[in-house]
């Protein structure tokens, strides 16, 4: 039996105004898999993540992206989220005045509504998130505060994964979730991510550091340069990269 593809990106060319950023990007991610995407600064990793999540302002000039067999690029960002695409932001955004719990409850209820499930009230929601709070060892007061407002860098990242834990996406894209985390937080967050792995879901983990991949063990590692994947391999590729640097890989 062949595996179910979650995400199929074919020959994707995209950019902003007159700048071409993705230049023929190909990647297929199947259910149950964890893929790591590495690459030099400015090679286009966040751009890819943004395009997958549906951020405005990018022009796709060529290629296709399928999510669970559907044309992903057709969908509005909120529709993608409701269908199970989740982006953990490299720079989570502060939303002053909007309570974190209220925000996440609204998000979860949107997803539930689109699945035809009843919405949760505040009490049911709190019951549901209790375990997830523990999982990520989140400080309770964070949920009483405004979304990301005044959170430390590490708290913001942890909060992203907490949201992921609550929303239970089919496809999670983690954009440099490890940067800015201290070593303890890194372990907690990785444990969290690993626990969220399910046979019917997949993860795309963008990182610069092999360190993260000690905890979140990828099935595949891809190296990106100048808008496309230039090398793919197993988890050893990350080790090789760590030892020899990009130069060596790009030349080989």
């Amino acid at each position: 039996m062949s595996k179910q593809p979650i995400l199929e990106i074919e020959n994707l060319h995209a950019g902003v105004e007159n700048k071409q950023i993705l230049k023929g990007f190909n990647l297929t991610i199947n259910a149950g898999e964890v893929h790591a995407l590495m690459g030099l600064n400015g090679s286009g990793k966040s751009t890819l993540a943004a395009i997958l999540a549906g951020r405005d302002g990018y022009d796709v000039t060529e290629g296709t992206v399928k999510y669970l067999g559907k044309d992903l690029l057709e969908l509005d960002p909120e529709e993608r989220a409701r269908e199970g695409v989740f982006l953990a932001f490299q720079y989570p955004v502060e939303i002053p005045g909007v309570n974190s719990t209220y925000f996440l409850k609204a998000a979860l209820n949107e997803i539930r509504k689109s699945k035809g499930q009843p919405e949760l009230d505040a009490i049911e929601f709190l019951e549901l998130v209790k375990d997830k709070i523990k999982l990520l060892e989140l400080k309770d007061d964070l949920l009483k505060r405004s979304v990301n407002e005044g959170f430390s860098g590490g708290e913001k990242k942890r909060n992203e994964i907490f949201q992921m834990a609550v929303l239970e996406p089919r496809l999670a894209i983690l954009d440099e979730t490890d940067s800015g985390l201290d070593i303890d937080a890194l372990k907690i967050v990785s444990t969290g991510v690993n626990k969220l792995k399910r046979p019917d879901s997949a993860q795309l983990v963008i990182t610069h550091y092999q360190r993260l991949l000690n905890y979140i063990v990828p099935d595949f590692v891809h190296v990106m340069a100048d808008g496309r994947i230039v090398k793919s391999g197993g988890k050893d590729l990350a080790l090789e990269l760590e030892a020899n640097g990009y130069e060596a890989i790009l030349k080989s």
Partner: peptide, 26 residues
Amino acid sequence: GEDQIFYCNARGLSTQDAVNMIVNGF
């Protein structure tokens, strides 16, 4: 900001709901 709206969108909230939420918070 566009960033705030997109962040809300990426969590499943429509733009109108996002604006309402931010404005009501304000």
